[in-house]
Amino acid sequence: MKRRWLRIRNYAEHSKVLVVLMLLICIITACSKTTEQEQQAEEQSSPASKVTVTIEGGSYIPNLSERIEIDWKSGMTVTDSLKQTGIVKISEEDGAIMSVGDVALDTKMGWGIVVNDEELRQPTAMEKIVGPGDTVVVFVKRMDVKTNSLPTAGLTLSIDGGTTIPEMTNTYVVSWKKNMNVNDLIDEFAQISLSDDGKQVLHIGQRKMEKTIDFTLKVNGKKMTVAEGRKLVLQPDDQIEFIITP
């Protein structure tokens, strides 16, 4: 009887030890998982796991300035990072930037790209891999600027096609030329044919307009007649608006 009692006692003591060991193992495992989860959360929220895309309009488009942080993913390219901003439109044909927001550029200007202070000069460089913490800067530049030459000023042309021709609605940055006037912009960008008094739109491209289509001109927020605009010599940084209604 005594031996049996000793065996039971020893078994109970061993069981207690096993229970304690199992509790310790569970606690250590739980702590380890918590630590791993905390580390993963810190990595995901860390600035180093982001890519920063900065849009700089410079003196050409002073109001075009934005800084966007996007989540970095392994294998992400410059093109991927720009597309993820939601405001940079990339051409499917050549991979070049078509527009930023609602701003497009004339043929004498282009979008430059800098990754970590290094400008990408070849179209193929758009497939360059970006890493966590990298910075991608998109800026406006002249396409024919020579080294050490001063940048040429530009002006902004906004076209509102209204409900008549909504696909025409866009904003352009136009390189400024001496003695440039409104007519130069109407002919080159809008392809609009106006009545003699400049109040009505007769043609847009090859498309003939109804007599009810009106044309409004604004320069730096001030409404003026087309006749006045034709006499006005445009200056660098001027903002011109063409508004077609309805």
Rank of each mutant, 00 (worst) to 15 (best):
A227C: 10
L21N: 15
K218I: 00
V145K: 11
K211F: 09
S193K: 03
K231S: 04
I28N: 15
T156D: 08
Q44I: 14
I186R: 11
N63V: 12
G131F: 02
V19R: 15
V51E: 12
T164S: 07
E56G: 04
A190M: 12
K128L: 05
T124G: 01
L23N: 09
Q37V: 13
K108T: 12
T216E: 03
T152A: 13
N170A: 11
D237G: 00
T35I: 14
Q122C: 01
V78A: 02
K199G: 08
N170K: 15
M168F: 05
E36K: 14
G229S: 04
E167F: 12
T212P: 01
R7H: 09
G86M: 02
I113M: 09
G221E: 05
K128H: 11
A30N: 14
Q200I: 10
A30F: 08
C26T: 12
E93W: 04
L185D: 01
T77Q: 02
V88T: 09
I87T: 00
D144R: 14
D144W: 07
E119W: 04
Y11E: 13
L185W: 00
K50G: 05
A104P: 03
N170C: 05
I8C: 12
T135P: 00
T212N: 14
M76R: 06
T77Y: 00
V115N: 03
H14F: 14
A125Q: 06
R9C: 06
L24A: 15
I70E: 08
M143S: 14
K89Y: 09
E188Q: 15
I61R: 09
I243N: 10
L217P: 02
L157C: 03
Y11N: 14
K211V: 06
R67I: 06
I55A: 10
N116G: 06
L64G: 08
G154K: 07
D102Q: 10
I129E: 15
K178N: 13
E42Y: 13
I61M: 13
S81C: 05
T107C: 08
L24Q: 15
A125V: 02
K128Y: 12
T107N: 12
M168N: 06
M209L: 08
I192S: 08
W72M: 08
T135M: 08
M209D: 04
T171Q: 10
K89F: 11
V145W: 03
T245P: 01
D71E: 12
G95C: 01
G161H: 05
W111G: 09
E92Y: 09
L21V: 14
N10G: 12
